[in-house]
Design a protein around this nucleic acid. Structure first.
Lengths: 123, 123
DNA sequence: CTGCATGGTTTCTGTTGGAAACCTTGTTTC
DNA sequence: GAAACAAGGTTTCCAACAGAAACCATGCAG
């Protein structure tokens, strides 16, 4: 049972989706939402280095793609909560694996970079 | 046994690595190399829409990070083969899952987008 | 009426991505 | 022997995008 989509094809809509997924901020946001709803400024605080613009932009795209849900509470000041949608939850394990692979394999990557750069010096 | 790295921290080197991994072309290349070495023009042919510049640039970065290996054969014209390194192989399953999630979940994403846009029209 | 808090948007600028042209080495074609 | 081609790139140029910083709306507290 095959599906009609192919990421290797240009013009295939999956490319658009892969584009969204293959994004530093999107991955970090999805990973951060893994254990429950988080508010706008919570995400901004936890994900060091993200700008408000990129955060709101990325959240909007993730919401449009149906990966997260947004809920605003009429408190004052307004409170906005973001949470994974059921669809988004089907991604979390993979995203978490990818996000944390970097943490676990840093030493190997740093060593590879050092070796590569050293070899380049000796041209 | 914890590691000293944290993707949520700005300035943490894992961010650099996540940046590389969170890249459309890098993911497609890694996925394409899953079942054996492929040559430059082979990748260019299979991964529709990638430019030579982005292909060579991305390959260089992946090689520097130790995820892939490059081997040039003195044929004429020169033949260059790229293949996953052992480190790169530890990633393939995750990368493949992510790359193909898009294929499997396109209908849901498209439906979500349509619903979102329809709701936005009724403002 | 000044200040602060949340959750944004706008503006400006430097970096990046993509399209297309060019380069190098060596071989076959005319 | 000049032209064309093939692999694997690099360079150039322009449009799109990311990030920093400033701004904005609402509403309550002092």
């Amino acid at each position: 049972m095959t599906h009609p989509f192919d990421v290797y094809e240009d013009r295939c809509p999956t490319r658009m989706v892969l584009d969204r997924l293959a994004d530093k901020w999107a991955l970090l946001i999805l990973d951060r939402l893994r254990d429950g709803p988080v508010r706008f400024n919570g995400l901004k605080r936890d994900i060091r280095g993200i700008s408000q613009k990129m955060l709101s932009q990325t959240l909007k795209r993730l919401e449009r793609d149906g990966l997260i849900g947004r809920e605003a509470f009429p408190t004052v000041p307004v409170t906005v909560e973001y949470r994974l949608s059921p669809l988004g939850q089907t991604l979390t394990e993979t995203v978490a694996t990818l996000a944390h692979w970097a943490e676990h394999n840093m030493p190997a990557v740093l060593a590879a970079q050092a070796a590569y750069d050293a070899a380049a010096d000796g041209h």
